[in-house]
Design a binder for these strands. Structure first.
Lengths: 247, 247
DNA sequence: CAGTGGAGTCGAACAGTGTGCGAGTCGCTC
DNA sequence: GAGCGACTCGCACACTGTTCGACTCCACTG
């Protein structure tokens, strides 16, 4: 654009309808868009401002600091998790739905994972989710500190599983190749080190893991773990029938 | 320092012993020190160089990029995890030792947690750990993809639990107050929102969770979850006696 | 002994970051 | 019209990771 078309004289006043042109919700929303498409490193205040058609520092009127913005974004996507009402289904199903929903959210927004270890999440959406989780688990018969232990156990499994899965997914995406291709290239490297890690190498050969679809493994591993956890909880619950509370 | 004492003429040659003054191991070691004491945000190449008594850019001779350095640091601390030899103890004990050791490491080096979701960890120390874990679990009777599912399940529990614990610990440390004090200050805030989260509020009141020692809760929660997982695995194993392999 | 090459160190510089500050522009109410 | 509060924004500061070329050594070769 030639500069004389963009001078003080030609430039018309920005459309001021009396409504502020920026809002906290809009900022958080586009920040999430940016994070989803570009990753955590792709979000800077300047880039965010540019995408919103405003100066970078204007954002600071609506948001105290970038860390605060990230906290808002995390809480926002936490709200996407559906936690079933108690009583609709058996408790195992309810917990499974919650866990799978949380996992799906974390894989949709992988940047959340890197933030979970930095600040505790206590936004309204997280609180609402916790409240529904309490309802679900207490309807299942859990009380006292056992209830919170169960909640922690479920979320820990989701977070832990999603963490390693997201790490691999990010590496695959960075390389720009398919997962199968990468494993193919990794093969000679593993072959070479086979004698340093004999048990691991033997397992790789015997298990036939090299012929499985890598995309399905994550789902299966997560489901397997969740079933074991629910089995373990059922077992514990039957041993503490009536009042399922822990010391 | 007046400039005439630091001219080309007075400046004596740096002590060159023939040995390089910097080494990759030393760089990684002090980087870990810096990360432990100052957190992830406290590590910059310039600060690291200063602590090593050398220029920031000198580090780039030994390390390609900061991300590479972080990867080296992560693998290094992963080597601190002790995985028992199979046969020394019952498999549940062996797995418990590994899980608790990994948790202790993550709490010693909380900055690791934020990096786990970014890049997959495939350094030599992680490989050695994986190898020993395979040995431990196959001695326990797990084979095929079930073995890797079990390994993932254990590590996911450790990572997930440590993630939320580290987040709270970091927030507590930032505030410079004791955990009990913080919860005391948080009380009216929770009281106020009690009607928005009725189930949660009721549970808080009935469970008496407010009178527990917050430092012990994490340990108990982790141990509870681990026991449930091991129970679930035992149950599954007994149903697949002989060849404990999954589809 | 000259002198060549490579290992290693370093300062300057570049593009980019989060954020504080002061100035500026609106629409609204007296 | 005066004033005010809500809001926007350019400039500047300190700081980041990293590149580049210059520089200083030591070990080796002729």
């Amino acid at each position: 654009m030639p500069e004389f078309t963009d001078s003080v004289w030609t430039r018309q006043a920005r459309p001021r309808t009396g409504q502020p042109t920026l809002s906290r919700e809009q900022i958080v929303r586009t920040a999430i868009e940016l994070l989803d498409t570009e990753g955590a490193a792709g979000l800077s205040m300047r880039r965010l401002g540019a995408r919103l058609g405003s100066g970078a520092t204007s954002l600071y009127w609506h948001v105290a600091t970038k860390d605060d913005l990230l906290e808002l974004a995390v809480d926002q996507v936490m709200g996407e998790i559906y936690v079933p009402e108690p009583g609709d289904t058996p408790w195992r199903v309810g917990v499974s739905v919650m866990a799978n929903g949380m996992r799906a959210m974390l894989l949709r927004h992988p940047w959340v994972i890197g933030l979970l270890g930095v600040r505790p999440t206590i936004g309204p959406n997280v609180m609402r989710m916790s409240n529904r989780s309490v309802a679900l688990l207490s309807a299942a018969g859990f009380t006292g500190s056992a209830l919170s232990h169960v909640h922690s156990l479920i979320t820990a499994h989701v977070i832990g599983a999603a963490t390693t899965e997201a790490a691999v997914a990010a590496a695959v995406q960075r390389s720009g190749q398919s997962a199968a291709k990468i494993r193919e290239q990794l093969e000679p490297f593993l072959e070479e080190n086979a004698r340093d890690y004999p048990d691991y190498a033997r397992w790789r050969q015997e298990s036939g893991v090299t012929e499985l679809d890598p995309d399905q493994i994550w789902d299966q591993s997560f489901a397997f773990g969740l079933e074991r956890i629910l089995d373990g909880l059922d077992l514990w619950r039957s041993g503490h029938a009536g009042s399922a509370s822990a010391a």
